[in-house]
């Protein structure tokens, strides 16, 4: 059989709101879309917290996308990869997304930089959208002025998916790519593979590429043949 070579640019999971499985986060999603989409009565900061893999980064990307779709300015700063100076370059207008505050908490320089950025956002009518694993008072920040400002904005908990929701999320993502993932296969994946969402969606990427390449439907034997290492 001739193998079809998949294009390397194909199938990126576009991290938009439409591709986020809401589960128990429906209210958060509605509030976030509204805050990003309209420019009245919005707080200077929106703070999302939740454990690793609950979808915070996805929501930040989706917010950037929505803002840009509306022809607004948006920037994304992952603090775990970028130095604090990156924050000093931003003018505080439009949407400013800061990911991984945990990585920076406790560092005096980065906290001061974030505080200044907050002040610029307030002056420039910008919105600071922050993601971290814990609420402002418990994330390890030392600067009280920053903590109180973050508390004063909108603070939302992003609920992690349970197994049933992960299964549905997996199927939704597959369907958005035009793949059919039966309930049986989704159950198998959840039973046999690491269940954190990063691993699951990463697995879906690989399954997608392989199924396209081999022109096969996604079945349990196909997964077994893929050679992915399941957990015993």
């Amino acid at each position: 059989m001739t193998r079809q070579i998949p294009l390397s640019v194909s199938l990126p999971d576009s991290a938009g709101f439409e591709n986020f499985y809401p589960a128990r986060n429906e209210q958060l999603l509605a509030a976030l879309r509204e805050c990003i989409g309209i420019h009245v009565m919005q707080p200077t900061s929106i703070y999302l917290y939740g454990e690793a893999g609950c979808g915070k980064t996805h929501l930040l990307y989706a917010s950037v996308r929505l803002t840009r779709d509306l022809e607004g300015a948006a920037s994304y700063i992952p603090l775990h990869h970028w130095p604090a100076e990156a924050l000093n370059q931003l003018d505080g207008k439009g949407l400013v997304c800061v990911d991984g505050l945990d990585a920076a908490a406790g560092g005096a320089a980065v906290e001061r930089a974030l505080f200044r950025l907050y002040e610029r956002c307030q002056a420039g009518a910008g919105v600071l959208l922050i993601a971290a694993r814990a609420p402002p008072g418990q994330v390890g920040l030392g600067l009280d002025d920053l903590i109180s400002r973050l508390h004063g904005g909108a603070v939302y908990h992003v609920a992690s998916l349970n197994d049933l929701e992960k299964r549905e999320a997996l199927r939704m993502r597959a369907a958005n790519r035009g793949l059919q993932l039966t309930d049986e296969v989704a159950r198998y994946v959840l039973r046999r593979y690491p269940r954190d969402t990063h691993a699951l969606f990463g697995l879906l990427d690989r399954i997608d590429v392989a199924s396209l390449s081999e022109q096969r439907r996604i079945t349990i034997p196909f997964l077994q043949k893929l050679g992915e290492t399941p957990q015993r």
Binding site: Q27, E34, M41, H151, G152, V155
Partner: peptide, 20 residues
């Protein structure tokens, strides 16, 4: 503790009322 947190709580309540 402070006025900002009151404001934060109000944001949550208004968002919830709008949503539901």
């Amino acid at each position: 503790s402070n006025v900002r947190e009151l404001e934060g709580a109000l944001h949550r309540i208004l968002a919830s009322a709008r949503f539901t």
